[in-house]
Write a protein that binds this DNA or RNA. Sequence first.
DNA 1: TAGGTTTGATAAGCAGATCTTATGATGAAC
DNA 2: GTTCATCATAAGATCTGCTTATCAAACCTA
Lengths: 298, 298
Amino acid sequence: MMNLTLKQLRYFEALIHHKHFGHAADASGISQPALSMQIKEMEESLGVPLFERAARQVRLTRFGEDLAPRVRDILRSVGEVEDMARLAQHTMSGRLRIGVIPTIAPYLLPSFIGHLKQEHPTLDVHIRETLTPRLITELAEGKIDTAIVALPVSEPAFEEVTIFEEDFVLVRPESDAMRPVPSAADLQLMKLLLLEEGHCFRDQALSFCNIRSALPRDGLDGSSLTTLVQLVAAGLGVTLIPQMAMSVETHSAAVSVAQFPEPRPKRKIGMIWRKTSPLTDQFHQLARIVEIAANGMH
Amino acid sequence: MMNLTLKQLRYFEALIHHKHFGHAADASGISQPALSMQIKEMEESLGVPLFERAARQVRLTRFGEDLAPRVRDILRSVGEVEDMARLAQHTMSGRLRIGVIPTIAPYLLPSFIGHLKQEHPTLDVHIRETLTPRLITELAEGKIDTAIVALPVSEPAFEEVTIFEEDFVLVRPESDAMRPVPSAADLQLMKLLLLEEGHCFRDQALSFCNIRSALPRDGLDGSSLTTLVQLVAAGLGVTLIPQMAMSVETHSAAVSVAQFPEPRPKRKIGMIWRKTSPLTDQFHQLARIVEIAANGMH
DNA sequence: TAGGTTTGATAAGCAGATCTTATGATGAAC
DNA sequence: GTTCATCATAAGATCTGCTTATCAAACCTA
């Protein structure tokens, strides 16, 4: 027996304002008896009278007066909650946690985040950069909202959308610039420098060359594309990098870059998120922004 | 469309806490479908999903997370309002504005307020000291909550309760101490000093002597009982004062005090308040405290 | 003082909200 | 593949809250 409702609080406030049951009821869009009853019920559930009904005047009791500012406060807070909802309906806002793999992050993010901030200034973007398996775990656990990775991921719990495809290019020492571009088979015989175990890009490169990842490849792994390119410049071998990384990584290094002939090696970049996430619409919108950012890079 | 209810907010909080529809429903004392529906309705009325329902886990969306502290805040405020009501039900609290006539106030109030503060420490007491007609006006207008006056007041809009009766005593110069106490008829022939026009005590004294107030009585009116007693001490006449005033007013004055024989003049002191006031119970309680305070004075 | 007016309370009936139980659907676990 | 867990949906019962109609009290006017 103490069941206040927001409706009662609203009627209470209206009656305080109008000091007249009929007028307050009109203002609240209900009939006078309905308002009378709700006020009465409110008084009964509180166990304390709120108004003193005298002839031709409705006066707040002392207790009612004490209550008034608190009730106003509550109604204001509720209004703010509703405002928040209205805002959240239309704009993308709040925190958004995006995972990105290391072979994409440094090249795509600067442009992507620029576009994103421009279109959704209220968005609070968090970036998590790590390898695909960990991103998958964190996504499943709700630690991130979405991830930008190489597809396919093939997790039944996730939705996948492709954003763009991207070729791999060959990076050789500058001295090799005039040589013919080796075939995949040729590559197996060359000193191919790759990222260390765990990077999906490593596996994609190996698969292009039909090399089994399990084979011992001592001394040929680097921890970042930057390292690999520097090793190539030092003449230790050749490597593949995604096209997106080309301009950043090879700009100031003594290496030459070559396209492969068809069928070129490539990877598919896309976004993934939990199928259960209610943000599907926003993620599609986000994918568009990634695409625009990526296109703007060539 | 946008009709939140407190019930929904409570269910929302329960679901946040339990992260499980069934358990949250149990905790809320309703069935699981009822809770599911209310949460769904809340999401629809806000237009934004609050929870992400995945297999075996219920996870707050970003928006739900933003909402949670505000909802908690609202529910806490509502709880406080209910607490206030519970408190107000039992104890007398809040502001209480009491009117008192000048021939009572200085003698009764110190003791009365002492008792009152002791029994109801949270009570915020305001005292208004003025003549009866003004108290009546202010009471009718709601500027004070109750008044302690001489009865009867006979206002149909007011409730009256008698608290105690009080004799009037005769104050004469010290030199008259051994003389016989004059009768009411004798008093008419003596120089009777009285309060100025407007004090009910003046009229009560006059009525005892069968003197018509309208008669010219130049130079014989004072504005307070203190003044009157001092005038008596100076040999300018005699006066009547209420017994309650005796010890305070005659303690250090060169006057003698005498009781009248039966039928003694007296007045009836009581409390009045608007019949419409919801504080009737409290006023009766208050009257008891006044009575105790008055008894403690002899 | 009598009759009309204002205003809040009460009554009866209806509509919609909210709950319950029963059942369905989906994904996880064995 | 079967069973279990869990949330959604459906159908029906009950309660709540609203409406209109009416009453009662008190004020106002004449």
